[in-house]
């Protein structure tokens, strides 16, 4: 381990190494999260995609979960020395050359507003925009699938216009319907399961994003481009 790292990691109260635009911290005994600490943008995500390709080949890695400018690495066994692992991850991050994933373009028909848009009014209040403007800004956007996760086939989409940013809810909705078009912070996506959800719903899309019996169960893949097409606007 080089001197710079040992300095940063003292005291070893909490393992959270931070250097060169990335930070590594543990989740329990066998999982480690590397987060890019820079901007939430495509450039960071392209480096995460490159890092994912490198790390998934490591012998001690069971699975990797790319997230939004971050990567969760699950090991086969608990490492006795987590710092060495953290340093290895940070070094791989430093060497990760940006790659782009040539994805497909997916168009999703949406009903904006209507009975499922339970949080549109709150978003208008927060942004100072009219419901019509919020909807227009949302469907004019071009989104990129940064990662899949949370529920089967759910795509985390990047590219939200900051004007319609909306933080996650303090108290999650208990029973949000599958198909709700949602905003969570600077992220957007379509709910794939009915259930508790902390994101904000502004519309609804009929779609099947996951088939467990298929060879490729998820419809979306990281790198895909998504456009929302207003099928109807009910305000």
């Amino acid at each position: 381990m080089n001197a710079a790292v040992s300095q940063m990691s003292q005291p070893v109260e909490t393992l959270a190494l931070d250097r060169n635009g990335a930070r590594v911290s543990p989740i329990g005994s066998r999982a480690f999260l590397l987060e890019a600490t820079g901007d939430f943008d495509l450039a960071s995500q392209r480096r995460i995609w490159a890092l994912s390709r490198a790390v998934e080949l490591w012998r001690d890695v069971l699975e990797i979960v790319p997230g939004m400018t971050n990567l969760l690495v699950v090991l086969k066994v608990t490492p006795e020395d987590p710092e060495t692992l953290a340093v290895r991850l940070l070094e791989a991050w430093e060497h990760a050359e940006s790659i782009d994933l040539a994805g497909r373009t997916i168009e999703i028909a949406v009903t904006y507003g209507g009975e499922h848009a339970t949080d549109l009014a709150a978003l208008c209040d927060r942004s100072g925009l009219s419901d019509r403007e919020v909807v227009r800004i949302h469907y004019e956007g071009t989104y990129r699938v940064f990662a899949l996760g949370s529920a089967p086939g759910f795509g985390y989409l990047h590219g939200l216009d900051p004007r319609i940013y909306m933080p996650r809810k303090t108290v999650p909705s208990l029973n949000m319907a599958r198909g709700c078009l949602t905003i969570g912070g600077m992220q957007t996506g379509v709910a794939v399961l009915t259930g508790p959800n902390g994101w904000n719903s502004i519309g609804f899309a009929e779609l099947q994003m996951f088939d467990p019996m298929s060879a490729t169960p998820a419809v979306m893949a990281p790198g895909d481009t998504v456009r929302f097409v207003p099928a109807s606007i009910e305000l």
């Binding site: 329990g28 979960v65 997230g67 971050n70 969760l72 996650r168 992220q187």
Partner: peptide, 12 residues
């Protein structure tokens, strides 16, 4: 704090 979504494992 408003975090960017990331993978988690059981036990978190």
């Amino acid at each position: 704090v408003e975090m960017r979504s990331h993978g988690v494992v059981s036990g978190v």
